[in-house]
């Protein structure tokens, strides 16, 4: 036996067995190295996150109280709160979810299931991949021109509706790509089974493919919404305000009121000289993070429910 590390002797009677050199120790060593590297990656990213969170929590937790959540912003830090920004974020995110889910998922299904591999689809695919990488401020400029100016009669200018539409545009590419990936992961044997039973394309998609892909699609949608909730630049571009001392009425008219959102409020507080405002900003960040966690929690809950139903 050429290898000194041979543990099992059984194959020595095979004529060509000596051509194998198992080198188990060095293979296990490679295993170990990669495991350590992967661990290091996890530790580094988690440490950065934990330090950031601890810092923010340390600064901001003292500011989190009922008053902070239920007061409008004010020039005096002690009385200032983020009610209008919180409500604005909820309005905008609800609208973004409402717009982006059907449009993004619908477009993804159309591209993947109905016109896959056509010339048109190839062109659209390349463009969507590019759009997903366009800086968000560009979407802000687009929103400013299209929604705030051209569609003024509908949106009413620098309003919740304009903001939501702009953010919808921003995350549509992400949702479309996630939808297509999830659809693509459904085995084609299921499609064939459906077609072979005399199902139309829509029936195959609706009854077989979509339910299979839904958990993945939901994950993609939530990731996209998580991106939208933290966006500041495009909303500043279309002219979201920082001092809002009223709440939009709970009606269609509410869509056409001016607004603020949490990241803009935080941005505004951070850019002030007084240290008290910086504490407020930390408090705002905590509220934003809690909202994010809630959203992700809902997503995981939904996903598990749909997976059980299969």
């Amino acid at each position: 036996m050429t290898s000194p590390n041979q543990v099992l002797q059984g194959d020595s009677c095979q004529p060509n067995a000596y051509k194998f050199s198992p080198a188990l120790p060095s293979r296990y060593k490679t295993d170990g190295i990669f495991k350590a590297l992967a661990w290091a990656a996890v530790v580094i990213s988690l440490t950065v996150l934990v330090v950031l969170l601890a810092d923010v929590a340390n600064d901001g937790i003292s500011r989190i109280n009922w008053n902070f959540l239920t007061s409008f912003p004010s020039r005096r830090p002690a009385e200032s709160g983020l009610l209008s920004a919180l409500v604005g974020t909820i309005w905008v995110m609800a609208l973004v979810a409402l717009f982006s889910f059907p449009i993004g998922v619908g477009a993804g299904i159309f591209l993947e299931e109905f016109i896959a591999d056509s010339f048109f689809e190839n062109i659209v695919e390349v463009n969507i991949a590019n759009l997903a990488a366009v800086p968000s401020i560009i979407y802000g400029l687009l929103g400013l021109q299209v929604f705030v100016r051209w569609l003024f009669p509908i949106t009413g200018g620098r309003t919740i509706l304009s903001g939501a539409l702009t953010l919808t545009l921003l995350i549509l590419p992400i949702i479309i790509i996630a939808t297509r990936e999830s659809l693509r992961a459904v085995p084609s044997s299921l499609r064939q089974a459906g077609f072979a039973l005399g199902a139309t394309r829509w029936q195959v998609v609706r009854e077989i493919i979509f339910p299979q892909a839904l958990p993945g699609i939901l994950t993609g949608v939530i990731l996209a919404l998580s991106r939208a909730i933290g966006e500041t630049a495009p909303l500043i571009t279309i002219g979201a305000l920082t001092f809002i001392a009223f709440l939009p009425p709970l009606s269609l008219q509410g869509l056409r009121t001016t607004f603020s959102v949490l990241p803009i409020q935080v941005f505004n507080w951070v850019s002030r000289p007084q240290a008290e405002f910086h504490l407020l900003a930390a408090g705002g960040i905590i509220v934003l993070m809690v909202m994010l966690l809630l959203m992700n929690g809902i997503a995981i809950y939904l996903r598990n429910r749909f997976q059980q139903n299969r």
């Binding site: 085995p187 044997s189 299921l190 064939q192 089974a193 459906g194 072979a196 039973l197 005399g198 199902a199 139309t200 029936q203 009854e207 077989i208 299979q212 299969r310």
Partner: peptide, 24 residues
């Protein structure tokens, strides 16, 4: 009708596997 080389039941209940084709 067609039966494939690799069994490919739908990820649904046994009942639904049969009922699906009839329903659509």
């Amino acid at each position: 009708g067609m039966v494939f080389q690799k069994p490919n039941p739908f990820p649904k209940s046994i009942y639904e596997n049969i009922a699906f084709g009839a329903r659509i």
